[in-house]
Amino acid sequence: MFAPNFSFEQEQQFFLDIQQSIENQSFDRLILSQYKGELAQLEKMTFRQIDLQGQATLSCLYHYPTQDMTKNYSIDEGLEKIAELLSQSKQANLFTLHEDVQLKKNKKKAMLSRQKKQAEATKIEQQHNREKHRYVQQQSPFLKHLGITDEKGQVIPSMARKWKQINKFIEIFSNAYEQIDASQQALNIVDFGSGKGYLTFALYDYLQAQNKTPLITGVELRSNLVEFCQQVADEVGFNHLDFFEGDVRSYSPEKLDVMIALHACDIATDFAIHTGIRLNASMIMCAPCCHKELRPQLKSPEVL
């Protein structure tokens, strides 16, 4: 287990509390704030423990003024990163199932305080944690830009079904992704019929959190949606996410690892499948559209 060298006794005890809570599976989350290190504009860091492909993992959400970034670490790597960031932060809050621990530092001393939790509150929090496991971080800035969450990062009630759909899509993708060559760093992905980009943005965010380099293009016929999505991508810092005005017949990628076509209208899904096969895509995700092909064939009775 990683063992850092601390200058403050209270800071050392706080770090031991983190280690112990992880070892006894009572760790909920850790928030490091008032950061004074070399990472420009970094405001705070939130660590949580997640299960990633069967491995216990420490996931850190780095909060910046204009965007958030997620990085995942093994337990030992995560503890090493926590020790580094803890020494550069003036306040830290550890939340466990049994108590909340706060560390405050100034130039002269470090102060450690504890608050025990009631048994009933612990039980409720355990249930809450199980229910809240998501593949996409609810605080991700792109969700606010797309109208999924409000200014406080809460899911807007009318968008609850879309939020559920986003997480289900990433869950399906992650399970399929494990079956292809997951060792490659860069992934070339095309989403035909990307629409407003809900799933396209979520996929980019998820892969970035897996320390991959997603090279994603959303292809969409409606120019207003292309312009909107490209503006959001630029604002949230998704530098390798681009949007193209056209369809599967007008956009021809040179390389394709993952091809996505969800409800592409009429026979566009067939063209998309052909493109994926022709370019030897490792993964093809499709859900065909039927209404524009079948509806013209439906003949109403004379009485109607």
Rank of each mutant, 00 (worst) to 15 (best):
241 L>T: 07
35 Y>A: 08
110 A>C: 10
220 E>A: 08
59 S>W: 03
256 L>H: 07
121 A>Q: 13
37 G>W: 07
177 Y>A: 05
6 F>D: 01
196 K>T: 11
59 S>F: 01
10 Q>M: 06
9 E>G: 01
126 Q>F: 08
118 Q>H: 10
151 E>Y: 11
42 L>M: 10
225 L>I: 06
162 K>R: 14
187 L>M: 13
148 I>W: 08
297 Q>I: 04
184 Q>Y: 05
103 L>C: 04
53 Q>W: 11
228 F>I: 04
218 G>E: 03
287 A>C: 09
112 L>C: 07
10 Q>Y: 01
91 Q>E: 14
149 T>P: 06
297 Q>H: 14
226 V>Y: 04
206 Y>C: 02
192 F>H: 04
229 C>T: 13
218 G>L: 05
53 Q>R: 13
273 I>H: 01
124 I>E: 11
171 E>G: 08
150 D>M: 09
240 H>M: 10
267 I>Y: 04
145 H>S: 13
281 A>E: 02
225 L>F: 13
145 H>A: 14
14 F>E: 02
216 I>R: 03
12 Q>E: 10
38 E>K: 11
114 R>K: 13
70 T>N: 05
289 C>L: 04
33 S>P: 01
67 Q>S: 12
186 A>K: 15
222 R>E: 10
151 E>N: 13
241 L>W: 06
85 L>Y: 09
40 A>D: 10
53 Q>N: 12
101 V>R: 00
208 Q>S: 13
264 A>F: 02
274 H>S: 15
10 Q>I: 01
173 F>E: 05
215 L>M: 13
276 G>T: 03
62 Y>N: 04
182 A>Q: 13
168 K>L: 15
45 M>Q: 05
68 D>L: 02
161 R>D: 14
59 S>K: 10
105 K>A: 09
179 Q>F: 01
57 T>R: 05
235 E>A: 14
114 R>I: 00
242 D>C: 09
156 I>L: 15
282 S>Y: 02
255 K>R: 12
82 I>R: 02
247 D>A: 07
127 Q>E: 12
233 A>W: 03
290 C>M: 07
248 V>C: 14
274 H>Q: 15
2 F>K: 06
13 Q>P: 00
155 V>T: 13
200 T>G: 08
46 T>V: 13
276 G>Y: 06
61 L>T: 11
216 I>L: 15
234 D>S: 12
291 H>L: 06
77 E>F: 00
259 M>Q: 07
112 L>V: 05
220 E>F: 03
163 W>G: 07
157 P>G: 06
46 T>G: 00
183 S>Q: 12
156 I>Q: 13
94 L>I: 06
100 D>C: 00
